[in-house]
């Protein structure tokens, strides 16, 4: 199924989304793990400057998809382009689920964020200024002179997100970034992320195992089927931003979430 075609059908259903252009184009993607086919000739367009959530059955290949796109694992076949550019020509950010194992514990939080710029050959003085500017812009109120292991989980994940954002990535990938946090912190972090998105307009791709979260944050929800993964649906989420906890009880939101859940259950029951 063509991704944008399904986007289009929802556009007429929910009203126009000022016509997003595709940012990431995935063509003919195939990936097999030890004989298990995860993707077979998979096509996808991810819209530019929009927040896309990826949702689907456990083990269907959500992480694999963004890892293939971000180049963390090699594709067997297929092509991924970012506005026509290759991965090597594109600045991307990636936020891992396991912040404990993704941050560098031998560096302070500040140095962790700064390191991303060091790798991009930004001179030290400028790098420090850019980190400070980002802290300012996001209104981050944590002591960045501490080491990651001295921080709470939410603070560590916020540092991870800052590390990914400081290079001003064209695309930001997040793989279940909040699933290791407690519920209160998760709610707080969702709104932090929403603010960052509104603030920067970066193309974001979030993998989530929580349908409510996926819909709440997204402009588009990519629903994947069971392996080998296909696009089961790719609806537009037309709710206005910023979204508030009250959005969760908005009838449109509830209806859309219900549709997604139906699709999901249909896909899970298929075998």
């Amino acid at each position: 199924m063509n991704a944008l075609a399904s986007v289009g059908s929802y556009r007429t259903l929910y009203g126009p989304d000022d016509a997003p252009t595709p940012h990431i184009t995935v063509r003919g993607l195939s990936k097999t793990f030890q004989g298990v086919v995860i993707y077979d000739n998979f096509n996808l367009d991810i819209p530019r400057g929009r927040f896309t959530s990826v949702f689907g059955p456990n083990g269907c290949g959500k992480s694999t998809l963004i890892n293939l796109i971000a180049g963390l694992i090699p594709v067997d076949k297929g092509e991924v382009l970012f506005g026509g550019k290759t991965l090597a020509q594109t600045r991307i950010g990636y936020v891992f689920q396991n912040y404990r194992e993704a941050l560098f514990p031998w560096m302070t939080a500040f140095a962790n964020v700064e390191y991303a710029l060091t790798l991009r050959k930004v001179p030290a003085k400028q790098a420090k200024e850019r980190v400070n500017a980002l802290v300012e812009r996001l209104g981050v109120k944590i002591d960045l002179t501490r080491y990651p292991y001295e921080m709470s989980g939410g603070q560590q994940q916020l540092v991870s997100i800052m590390r990914a954002l400081v290079v001003e990535p064209e695309v930001l990938f997040l793989d279940e970034p909040f699933s290791a946090l407690d519920y209160e912190m998760t709610l707080f972090m969702r709104d932090q992320l929403q603010r960052v998105f509104e603030e920067t307009g970066t193309t974001m791709v979030l993998v989530s195992h929580d349908l409510e979260e996926a819909v709440y944050l997204a402009d588009y929800v990519l629903l994947l089927s069971r392996r080998p993964a296909k696009i089961a649906d790719f609806p537009l989420v037309p709710m206005a931003r910023p979204r508030h906890p009250s959005t969760l009880s908005d009838p449109d939101f509830v209806e859309l979430k219900g549709r997604c859940l139906e699709t999901f259950q249909r896909e899970v029951r298929k075998s």
Partner: peptide, 28 residues
């Protein structure tokens, strides 16, 4: 840790930098 190596790589670290900045520190 595999994740730390991947984190460095996705930020654009060369093989040499991954070795020096991540793997070496990880082995300390």
């Amino acid at each position: 840790r595999k994740t730390r190596i991947l984190a460095a790589r996705v930020m654009g670290a060369s093989r040499w930098r991954v070795m020096k900045d991540v793997i070496l520190m990880e082995s300390l």
